[in-house]
């Protein structure tokens, strides 16, 4: 059995039965005790808050009980779909998410592969460390950097004017047509190094003997990447891709609010920014919850679908 097949087997595990579960409690009780705090945390902070979803179906005001609130059924779901801008908001959300899920997803993989090819250990670690840094920079600072770079008096305008590509400054951040590109670029810059960590770890786990065997078989550097490294980390890539699909309706929030303005609103407005303004800021919690619930259900459905498709086409699945 080769490495790839072993990996597939790890993912496509046999389904556990309830009896197996009980047995695992008995046999691995020490491990379960260690996990107990984490499990309690998950229940308290991830599952119990889900009970609050009832307010999506009621006209809720903080302080009122369910008995005091009027049941309105799907009113807030319908309201979302009857908003005049709903399709534009959905378009923006899906477009930005798709860009993040394609370009934004591929770049960290490419970066990890390139980093893996560096032979100088010190330089490799240096680059790797530097690449993490933007992850820790707040979006407020990133927005400020973007204004400095892309403003009318910014470095990019100055440079383009100096080399004659522009006659006069272009306010890039006021151009609705450029917003998706600018946002995706900022997302990539900020998240590339951090996201690459998991791929770098996965690459480190690829058996070195495979590379030796590849050399013997006459593979060059690109050949090794294509035939050994990429298949070696395919499970990780698929796993993260499936999880990423679950967040397709979460296209960002603070970056849009910080980088966007009224000229770019037609391309920056996404579900989260809209719900923030119409739900949270206006105190309409039922509406905000309804949209949040809808996003979660849709995201969960997509994860299930992606998992199924992955199983069908690659014989690998999350669960």
């Amino acid at each position: 059995m080769n490495k790839s097949e072993q990996s597939k087997t790890l993912i496509t595990k046999k389904k556990k039965t309830f009896k197996d579960l009980l047995k695992s409690f008995r046999v691995q009780k020490e491990l379960w005790i260690i996990c107990l705090i984490a499990l309690v945390w998950v229940v308290v902070f991830c599952y119990i808050p889900m009970l609050g979803n009832w307010i999506a179906f009621f006209s809720y005001t903080p302080g009122k009980t369910m008995a005091d609130s009027t049941f309105v059924g799907l009113k807030y779901f319908k309201r979302f779909f009857s908003l005049p801008d709903v399709w534009r908001i959905l378009r923006n959300t899906l477009a930005i998410s798709t860009l993040n899920l394609t370009i934004g997803f591929a770049v960290p993989i490419a970066f990890a592969l390139l980093l893996n090819e560096l032979r100088n250990g010190f330089f490799k670690r240096f680059i790797q460390t530097i690449s993490y840094m933007p992850h820790f920079v707040s979006w407020v600072v990133v927005a400020s950097l973007m204004f400095t770079l892309l403003g009318s008096d910014g470095i990019i305008n100055e440079g383009l004017i100096k080399i004659g590509l522009l006659k006069e400054a272009v306010p890039f951040l006021n151009k609705a047509g450029l917003f998706w590109g600018i946002l995706t670029s900022a997302n990539i810059w900020k998240g590339m190094g951090w996201s690459a960590i998991i791929y770098i770890s996965a690459i480190a786990g690829v058996d070195g003997e495979l590379y030796d065997a590849g050399s013997v078989d006459g593979l060059g550097r690109f050949g090794k990447v294509w035939h050994i490294t990429l298949p070696g980390i395919a499970n990780t890539i698929i796993l993260l891709f499936i999880l990423g699909i679950g967040n397709i309706l979460s296209a960002g929030f603070e970056q849009q609010l910080l980088l966007g303005n009224t000229m770019t609103q037609e391309t920056y407005e996404v579900i989260d920014t809209y719900v923030y303004r119409y739900g949270v800021q206006m105190g309409n919690y039922s509406f905000a919850t309804a949209v949040g619930l809808m996003k979660s259900v849709f995201g969960f459905g997509l994860v299930l679908l992606a998992n199924k498709l992955s199983k069908k086409f690659t014989d690998m699945q999350l669960f």
Binding site: F18, M50, L51, N53, W54, G63, T65, M66
Partner: peptide, 28 residues
């Protein structure tokens, strides 16, 4: 049996959700 347990858990969560917030309050 596993399905039954899962169904029971879901029903409990739903019932608890319906009762959530039904504590004391003097609304109105």
């Amino acid at each position: 049996a596993t399905s039954k347990i899962l169904a029971l858990m879901l029903a409990t969560v739903l019932a608890a959700g319906c009762l959530a917030g039904c504590g004391k309050g003097s609304g109105g």
